[in-house]
Simulated scan of single mutants.
Amino acid sequence: MKIAIDAMGGDFAPEAIVEGTLLAGEALPADVELILVGQEDVIQALLHVPAFSTSVVEVIHAPEIIAMAEHPTKALTQKTRSSIAIGFHLLKEGKVDAFCSAGNTGAMMVGSMFSVKPLEGILRPTIASFYPKQDGGHGVILDVGANADCKPEVLDQFAELGSVYAKSVLNIANPRVGLVNIGEEEQKGNLISQQAHQLLKVNKKINFIGNIEGRDLFTDKADVLICDGFTGNIILKMSESFYDIFHRRGIEDSFLSEFNYEAIGGSPILGVNGNVVIGHGISSPLAVKNMISLAVKMVESKVLTKIKQALENKSV
């Protein structure tokens, strides 16, 4: 298995990315090969710090960098030798099994759309994320930022993608799907939510249990939460703030610690023809390590193959 990591993406790149990659390399099985993509001289200088082992990673040179604030489409078009562009090239050519970056999220979405491309039948690729439950388990929420506006049929497809992901990566046999809404009743919500509800309740590929209110997000009512990217991103960022607020106030709790972005490390883009994981822009070495571990789980679980099978109406 080979995992490519964008060494130049993120607020604290390349130092945090290189350190996190080395931490992952020391923890992962020997058959997992890690490839850092970026400016070779800069990466090699960091790899030769005495505290680090240099045997766990390979370096592929990419002289250009796409900055966090750059326009995604222009940057990828103009910077064909950037770490993100070359990372996607490796993934498209099958030279790596997954590509991770804590860099420009827009560029990662554009790269996913136009390099590895959406799977046949996908209406809109989506960014998914884990969320903690009070009972100690985890669920999946999508979309968390890729699609601010979604048609009902797109939300319906998100439910299928999220169900396959929960089965494959979280090992939940029959994931319960809930539609994030302002009330439990079927007729609640805006027109999009009402129409999506009607599609979800007759979708035989999923285990739809109805609407989920904000107060029930972190309970064990559902395993997959469906919403548009506008709502999902607000939920995600608000959830991350829980940990920050209570940590600053000196309050430590095992459940609250699950809201620390470092615990998960990254979010997969589902619905594209490759394993792609996006990390937080402020990723620390620990977050990078966990981002890479998530990519490894995705490859091991064969979630991409299972999504393709689901789209073809085959057994998953």
Rank of each mutant, 00 (worst) to 15 (best):
I3V: 15
G9E: 03
G10W: 09
F12W: 13
F12T: 12
A16D: 12
A16N: 13
E19K: 04
L22N: 08
E26P: 02
I35V: 15
I35N: 03
L36N: 04
V42R: 11
Q44Y: 01
L46A: 06
V49N: 03
A51D: 01
S53C: 11
T54A: 04
E58K: 15
E58Y: 03
H61M: 00
P63G: 02
P63I: 05
M68Y: 00
E70I: 02
P72E: 01
T80S: 11
S82H: 02
I86P: 10
H89Y: 04
L90E: 06
L91D: 05
E93K: 14
G94Q: 06
G94S: 07
V96T: 09
F99A: 07
A107H: 05
M109Q: 04
M109K: 01
V116R: 05
K117S: 09
P118I: 07
P118V: 04
L123K: 14
R124F: 12
I127L: 03
I127P: 14
I127N: 05
S129P: 13
Y131C: 09
Y131L: 13
P132I: 09
H138D: 07
G139F: 01
I141R: 05
L142I: 08
N147E: 10
K151P: 05
P152A: 02
E153Y: 05
A159N: 14
S163N: 11
S163C: 12
K167G: 01
L170Y: 08
I172S: 02
N174S: 07
V177C: 11
V177K: 04
E186C: 00
K188T: 01
K188W: 12
Q195H: 13
L199M: 15
L199I: 14
V202R: 14
K205N: 14
K205T: 05
K205I: 13
N207K: 12
N207G: 04
I209G: 12
I209V: 14
D216E: 15
D220S: 15
K221Q: 14
D228M: 05
N233D: 03
N233G: 09
N233E: 10
L236C: 14
M238H: 01
S239N: 02
S241F: 01
S241I: 03
F242W: 09
I245M: 10
R248H: 10
G250T: 05
F255D: 10
Y261P: 15
Y261E: 13
E262F: 04
I264G: 10
G265S: 09
G266A: 07
L270E: 00
G271N: 10
V277Y: 00
A287R: 11
V288Y: 08
V288P: 11
M291H: 12
I292G: 10
S293T: 11
V296D: 07
V296N: 14
K297Y: 09
V303P: 12
T305Y: 02
K306A: 10
I307K: 09
L311N: 08
K314H: 08
V316W: 01
